[in-house]
């Protein structure tokens, strides 16, 4: 019996099926997309599937169940650590954006050179761990801040909350995140031309109105990007909370790390990671919703 290949019917004899027209520029986009597919999407899916498996002594047992999520749901320690991580993320993102926005405004609209930007980015030239231990020196019991305050007679004893506390972790994380936020905000503000600001002023807008009705809505993607970038990195970080956060600084990142490294329970670690990712997604939706309600998102203004 002969088999008819139906594909032949869809293409003229002179056209090769491989010569389907692809969108212009796909060749340029393919490498990063492929990289993300292979090194993020695929592992994330694998992680999600694994989270429904069981584990026994460093071995994954493909026994479909939701036990890991039920265990997480009932684990008060995980939720406390998770809340600590999210709290870190919120304060770090908020402070980083608040610090970076005026600096970005200055770089884009006032400064004649990018010197300020480069100075802010200079801290990237030092290692992550070096910066953490530098902050230990600055904030320590006998560190620069406490010593200065004692010598000035402003305090009698070192301030305990400055080191090995969530405050110390947040200060260190802000130092790490501000350059990232600054870079994203500078990029976003460069799309808001100075002429728009002048036009708004010519039409009678106050400075506050220019900020809230022109600048913030037009750079809202950069704002969301800077906030979420700082938030996600800070909430998921477990090195700084461990080295600076002290007794109360444990975050869920450390617990997730422990499941993969110490206990060998990859399914539970995967479930924890996905739970954390879901929490971050909820925060993202809340933040975008907040901007929408505050009439600061272009979705309301321009579309």
């Amino acid at each position: 019996m002969s088999v008819d290949f139906p594909a032949r019917r869809f293409y003229p004899a002179t056209v090769n099926p491989l010569s389907i027209r692809l969108p212009r520029g796909w060749g340029l986009a393919t490498p990063p997309v492929a990289f993300l597919l292979f090194f993020f999407v695929l592992p994330a899916i694998t992680l999600f599937v694994t989270s429904f498996f069981a584990a026994q002594a460093f071995q994954i047992v493909p026994d479909w169940n939701v036990g890991n999520y039920l265990r997480i749901f009932k684990a008060a320690g995980f939720w406390k650590a998770n809340f600590q991580g999210l709290t870190n993320g919120f304060f770090v993102a908020t402070i980083s954006v608040l610090l970076a926005f005026p600096a970005a405004f200055y770089v884009v609209y006032r400064a004649k050179t990018n010197l300020i930007l480069y100075m802010a980015l200079l801290s990237w030239f030092s290692s992550y761990l070096v910066r953490i231990f530098a902050w230990r020196t600055i904030l320590g019991t006998n560190g620069m801040v406490n010593s200065a305050l004692i010598n000035l007679g402003l305090i009698d004893a070192p301030l305990d909350f400055l080191i090995f506390s969530p405050t110390a972790a947040i200060i260190t994380l802000v130092h790490i995140m501000v350059p990232f936020a600054l870079l994203i905000l500078v990029s976003a503000l460069q799309d808001v031309k100075a002429e728009y600001l002048e036009a708004a002023r010519d039409l009678g807008a106050t400075r506050w109105q220019v900020l809230t009705r022109v600048i913030l809505p037009m750079c809202h993607k950069g704002l969301v990007g800077a906030f979420m970038f700082s938030f996600i990195l800070a909430a998921g970080d477990f090195i700084i909370p461990q080295l600076m956060g002290g007794r109360d600084g444990i975050t869920s990142g450390l617990l997730i790390s422990g499941q993969f490294r110490s206990v060998g329970n990859w399914p539970l670690g995967s479930a924890m990671a996905w739970t954390l990712m879901s929490c971050l997604l909820i925060v993202y939706l809340l933040f975008v919703g907040l901007l929408y309600v505050a009439r600061l998102s272009p979705g309301r203004r321009y579309h």
Binding site: A57, A76, G77, F78, K80, R247, L255, G258, S262, V263
Partner: peptide, 24 residues
Amino acid sequence: PLTSDEHATYADWIQAWADFRAGF
């Protein structure tokens, strides 16, 4: 032990240690 029906396992200890550190 890594696995046991009778005794607390290494994973149980690690989890208890993590909970202890987190304040539970």
